[in-house]
Amino acid sequence: MRIITLLFSFSLLICSYCFAGSHEHDEHHHDEHHDDEEKHGTQDAHLHGYAEANVVIDGNSLEFNLDSPSANIVGFEYEASTQSEIDTVKAAEKTLKNTKKMFSFKGTSCQAKKVLVDVSALLDKKTDAAHNTEHDHHDEHHHDEHGDDGEVHSDVEANYQFVCKDGSKLKSIALVLLNSFPAIETLKVDWVKDGKQGSVKLSGKSNEVEFK
């Protein structure tokens, strides 16, 4: 009985430490980006090597969003000026648009319906305009949101919409994009599927989002 009491109080201690720890951690995080938030709301940490994504599956529709600091995608954060920089951005955009180089679905097959890649922060207005007309038919409110903060951030964003053969059979998605963009060391993926939610941290070694 004594051992049990001991064990139990030990676990309580650790639990309380963890809960307390979680506050500290998050509050710290919060402070760090407070200035940002004043302007843009919760812009996520702009850490090189770190990117965030989310994926939601509802029925047979699947939507994937990627948000990464530009440095992870092209290696710089400023507006591309030299030809080689512009070429780099174009090449990255091409890769981002090639869903085969980004995702691999397990359990069912999914067809891309819409792909929207936003590298506007890296290209000057002229090229950017051309880029926008290319996708003019999108009237997503997603796009509207960008109006507010589009100029300031130096993130690359990509939005993908897929239609899957049988969404309920989808077991996992391998994010092969981590091979295409090795500068993304850690990719935090939040996911929603059939009312279940979860979050995983991926890296080049483990690039699979499992829905369980």
Binding site: E37, G41, T42, D148, D190, W191, K196, Q197, G198, S199
Partner: peptide, 20 residues
């Protein structure tokens, strides 16, 4: 999260649990 009247935060409870 971008609500401009007041600083709000929306979380996905399952995601927050995963983080926990």
């Amino acid at each position: 999260n971008n609500y401009n009247k007041e600083p709000l935060m929306a979380i996905l409870p399952g995601v927050a649990l995963s983080e926990l």
